[in-house]
């Protein structure tokens, strides 16, 4: 029953997105714009600074992710459908998981566009260790979205939610950014430091477990007004 509800909510979110494509188009455009802004800051005489590619990639993901989270929940606010979900007798943590999966899939699509672009513009060897890179991206995206989904859901009712989401989200997700950037930088070296990347992946996996558990645990008391 838990998984069925999560699946239903995720499928509903994806159907809505496939039909309007609003969030996906704007988020991809925003991510690419971020990459360009950072390129002007960090590329000198045609050469990017060392490790710049990994940093730019993760900062763009974090910024674009914030935008996607805000827009996705704005949609649930539009005709108060989040309240309709809360009214259903279905398990509330399951609803959280459904929303989380929807966001994660959306961000993975954005990353599928973003990562090749970074490889192209910054000569980053994205294909040298594709499996490890994908692992870092998936684990990092889950960690970022786990915290983001919970806060964005709570902020639906709050005032000045557009400002509050990054204010709350960035300090908490700093470990994800550090692990993502350092792990990716290790993979982008001439001799990819795979064991280092794996160590960062382990940290990300641990972060994911702790924060998904904590979110499932606090979602119910947080959503009662």
């Amino acid at each position: 029953m838990f998984l069925r509800v999560a699946w239903l909510v995720m499928r509903k979110d994806l159907t809505v997105e496939v039909r309007s494509r609003e969030v996906i188009y704007t988020t991809i455009f925003f991510a690419v714009a971020c990459v360009l802004v950072f390129a002007f800051a960090l590329v000198r005489e045609g050469r990017p600074l060392e490790d710049a590619a990994a940093g730019i990639m993760w900062i763009s993901v974090a910024f674009a992710g914030t935008l996607a989270l805000g827009r996705t929940f704005e949609r649930e606010r539009h005709s108060e459908t989040l309240r309709a979900l809360m009214l259903a007798p279905a398990s509330r943590p399951a609803i959280y998981v459904g929303k989380l999966l929807g966001i994660v899939l959306l961000l993975l699509v954005v990353e599928a566009v973003l990562v090749p672009l970074i490889g192209l513009l910054f000569h980053a060897p994205i294909a040298s260790r594709p499996l490890e890179l994908a692992g870092l991206l998936v684990l990092g995206t889950i960690g970022f979205s786990a915290v983001g989904t919970l806060f964005a859901a709570m902020l639906v009712r709050a005032r000045s939610r557009d400002v509050m989401l990054p204010v709350l989200l960035y300090p908490i997700t700093i470990p994800v950014i550090i692990a993502g950037v350092r792990g990716t930088a290790a993979l982008f070296e001439v001799e990819p430091a795979v064991d280092l990347a794996q160590m960062w992946m382990a940290l990300l996996a641990f972060f994911d477990i702790v924060f998904v558990t904590l979110s499932l645990w606090t979602f119910e008391p947080l959503m009662t007004e």
Binding site: K12, T15, V16, R19, S20, H78, S79, E80, T81, R83
Partner: peptide, 10 residues
């Protein structure tokens, strides 16, 4: 509710 609780895209 007054807000109707419907998804306009569906």
């Amino acid at each position: 509710s007054h807000d109707l609780h419907l998804y306009p895209e569906l």
